[in-house]
Amino acid sequence: MLLTGISVIFIRNLFAVVVLAGMFSLLAAVLYVVLDAVDVAFTEAAVGAGISTLLLLGTLALTTDKELAKTKIKIIPLLLVIFTGSVLILGTRDMPNFGDAKAPANLHVAPRYIEESMKETGLPNMVTSVLASYRGYDTFGEVVVIFTAAIGVLILLGQGYRKSRRGSGKIINKNSGEAE
């Protein structure tokens, strides 16, 4: 997974980069299954590896798949990244160990969801019951965000864009964001 991430830096053919990004998402989905997050894995495989890759490929079709600039390691960003990384690693020394059932994150509201959600919502899948029932307003907010993004894409690639494309004599492509 790390390897795909790092090779994104060095490969100049953008098509290969996009395919690597899709692979990265799929590997992430596999990792989620291993970590018990099956619902997240579904979504990552369908949305992250599927729709994202499709959108990226659509963009490549509308633009270009060649990267012009030569890839060279830039010193200042690299130093900044290494510095940030080391500070973050220092910060992990206080974190609870992996898989610790007594970690603060696992003690606050989660036990209630695990014990009561079957009685209260009648759904065996706790993720579904939390998503649709306890935190339904979050899901509503998500819908609002997607709607806003869809409007943004439509504004950017809507009527005006098509007119300018027609002027340059190219094929008018269907807006790839509409499916969202």
Partner: peptide, 13 residues
Amino acid sequence: IVVGVATTALGLA
């Protein structure tokens, strides 16, 4: 994840 894809779509547009 879903919100991330929405922002990706906007950035690509």
